[in-house]
Design a protein around this nucleic acid. Structure first.
Lengths: 196, 196
DNA sequence: CCCAATTGCAAACGGATGGTTGGAGATGCG
DNA sequence: CGCATCTCCAACCATCCGTTTGCAATTGGG
């Protein structure tokens, strides 16, 4: 039959468009709530292409999580060795900024934890988290690896929390906005680093 | 037609059973992922009863959130006036314990933030959060109301985070378990209180 | 005891939805 | 240029699912 538009090939662009649309739709509505029709429409591609490139809805979700969250913690500017609590504070600010410029990242983290029993691309991402914890350990001489992991976990939890627990934020700190929350988190990260 | 079992009335029990089943199913799968058939089966009640008592699926979800999360922060043992950073630390431990004994609470908080634009029963819950922030302010003389709100928000975010960002916890702190995480959070809450 | 109102159930409805199918159009190679 | 293969689309399928319907059973008041 005649199609609405001429149908040129662009395999890489189609796949990327589906990943981008999938990221938007899964961030907004989660795995269960996202609709294949909506993903296709958002991508400007027929939804049948998802099955060709990713296998099924779950395959696309895993691909989106791996693609978007693969090096989330490393994407924020890391503290320098020996930079101490100030370096950790700056890292918290940079991570918060990362979430602020791409709020779908925090939301995808939250959906992943609620809807999946295991993280997408867990082995690679766990290795990257270990590297990032090592970076924090080198910023704070004397910090054990386990303590660095706990510190990093708290910083990520606090920074992402503005988006992952947005309703809680609205009720507990109704007068706050993102810049105010960022400032508090930078101070709190420094305090956590000092106490670590 | 003949029913599978005799059909006695118990209005209050039926409503409670649906709330309890709804809490379990919504905590596990979220609003979009929960199934009305499964809620009815879990409650041991015909799913049609949800429409009689709560209007529709969304009405049940709102009722569950209001019922389970209404006084979440107050349910944990509050710090005494003037009890200082130690009181805040103990409060963090109590809140973590609250989440540990009823992990559906943290998950419901997260689903609410991801799936709704506004919290259920927001006015009442915001008032309760303000009261709880006042309790923290009285525990730490000199703490401003806004700073108390930010401190409370960070404590809630950190305590709930073990469940709301469970996959992140597994990747960032793979060797940690709940008791270890609890101990770190108690220490971290004390550090945050000192810096507030 | 009778009857109106209420509660509860099984079955059905209409629309939604993930996934599949058949075929058109594009590409690349001989 | 012809043909095999690949990419893409529109339409369809089978099942799912929130909600409604018709009626049975229970309850309580006169």
């Amino acid at each position: 039959m005649r199609y609405a538009v001429p149908m040129a090939w662009d395999t890489a662009a189609t796949r990327q468009a589906l990943l981008d649309a999938g990221a938007r739709q899964f961030a907004e509505r989660g795995f269960a709530g996202a609709r294949m029709d909506a993903i296709g429409a958002d991508a400007g591609v027929n939804k049948e292409r998802v099955y060709q490139y990713f296998g099924n809805k779950r395959g696309l979700f895993d691909a989106v999580l791996a693609d978007r969250l693969g090096d989330l913690l490393g994407a924020a500017h890391a503290p320098s060795p020996g930079s101490g609590a100030a370096g950790i504070a700056a890292y918290a600010g940079a991570l918060f900024d990362r979430f602020a410029e791409r709020p779908e990242l925090a939301r995808l983290l939250a959906w992943e934890s609620l809807e999946l029993d295991g993280a997408a691309d867990a082995v690679a991402r766990t290795a990257r988290c270990a590297s990032q914890a090592d970076v924090l350990a080198s910023a704070l001489p004397g910090l054990s690896p386990a303590a660095a992991q706990q510190l990093l976990l708290s910083i990520v939890t606090l920074c992402a929390g503005w988006w992952t627990l947005a309703r809680v934020s609205e009720m507990v700190a109704p007068g706050s906005d993102a810049p105010a929350r960022r400032a508090v988190l930078v101070t709190q990260a420094e305090a956590l680093a000092r106490a670590a």
